[in-house]
């Protein structure tokens, strides 16, 4: 099992309500080997951030992991007590969130925040922690790191702040980084810088990255494999080039069709009718069937298929028979 950093098996997250139970993540399974970037795409409400939060044990109550397993380097982490999970977070799993300003403490110098993280997780002296903090900032490309280490978060620009957050996620040398929309709040040129940084870190250190985003372009350029989520379930999982150029699931196909493509020029976009269903009102059968262009009788009646029983690529009874 050492070949896989993160292994998620049949993960199910539930939110109990007074009268019913919502299920924002249902039967999700994937693996990430070292040095690999798994892109998780989907529209809002697809459950991609919920999946990420479940892996790092940061589900907001009342949401909880109701079933399945999460294995990190072969060890189960989904049933760890709070204290053990707290130690693991930051040490084994680093996190990068969308908004760099809210993930840094505005009242502490970034040096303090970095040193605190290093001292908490690594057996080093204060002196060494300080050196490592500077080294971490240099690694993510912050100029004059030794001088800027005493700055406060507000003194940095958005792109530089996101670099600080990445340095913070990296400083305890985790084997897995979960990046939840890391470039959504940034400008195009800065986004390109951050993506190049994530890719080089992944290559040089062999860190596994779970990259959650809604931007298909970012996924295409960054990820090795991609997981497409719809209404809490995996719709399609596979190597990024194959999934994007030759989708097996009608939802992936629809997503690709609705993304404006440079080469196609000014033509009508291929839109998916309707919107993502609400969690409290999921359709019977395959959750995508009311919007699916090639829906058959079976889709509405039988419960939604999973990827394994449909040939391993897409959760669709008719995967591979897609007429595009």
């Amino acid at each position: 099992m050492a070949e896989v950093v993160l292994s998620v098996r049949n993960l199910r997250v539930e939110i109990p309500l007074r009268r019913s139970v919502l299920c924002p993540v249902d039967g999700v399974s994937f693996d990430i080997p070292p040095g690999d970037i798994l892109g998780v795409v989907g529209e809002s409400g697809a459950g991609k951030s919920m999946t990420g939060n479940a892996v790092i044990g940061l589900l907001d109550r009342p949401a909880f992991i109701a079933g399945g397993e999460i294995l990190l380097n072969g060890q189960r982490i989904d049933n760890l007590p709070r204290e053990a999970m707290r130690r693991l977070r930051g040490k084994e799993i680093g996190m990068v969130f969308q908004d760099p300003l809210t993930s840094l403490n505005p009242l502490l110098q970034i040096g303090d925040q970095l040193r605190e993280t290093i001292l908490e997780h690594l057996p080093v002296s204060k002196k060494e922690a300080a050196d490592r903090a500077v080294a971490a900032l240099e690694e993510v490309g912050i100029p004059a790191a030794a001088r800027r280490i005493d700055s406060y978060p507000h003194e940095f620009s958005g792109g530089m702040r996101q670099r600080v957050v990445i340095a913070l996620a990296l400083c305890a040398e985790p084997s897995l980084i979960i990046a939840d929309e890391p470039t959504t709040a940034l400008d195009v040129s800065v986004q390109a810088q951050i993506i190049a940084l994530l890719k080089s870190l992944c290559r040089e250190r062999g860190t596994a990255i779970m990259l959650i985003t809604h931007d298909m372009g970012v996924i295409a350029e960054t990820a090795d494999r991609v997981a497409v989520m719809y209404a809490g379930r995996l719709a399609e999982l596979g190597p990024v080039r194959e999934v994007l150029t030759n989708p097996s699931h009608p939802y992936t196909n629809g997503l690709m069709g609705s993304t404006p493509l440079a080469s196609k020029g000014k033509k009508r976009l291929n839109q998916i009718p309707g919107a993502m269903p609400r969690l409290d009102n999921l359709p019977t059968g395959c959750a995508f069937h009311p919007r699916c262009p090639q829906v058959k009788k079976r889709c509405a009646v039988e419960p939604g298929p999973d990827i394994e029983s449909c040939g391993g690529r897409a959760a669709c009874w008719f995967a591979g028979e897609l007429s595009s």
Binding site: S157, D187, S189, A196, D215, G217
Partner: peptide, 24 residues
């Protein structure tokens, strides 16, 4: 040129972009 180059492309599998330097 930099803006067009830096924008992620759907067909840019494994594209290595020389990231733009500096910020606004």
């Amino acid at each position: 040129k930099m803006l067009i180059d830096a924008a992620p492309r759907l067909d840019g599998f494994g594209r290595e972009v020389e990231p733009p330097t500096g910020e606004i």
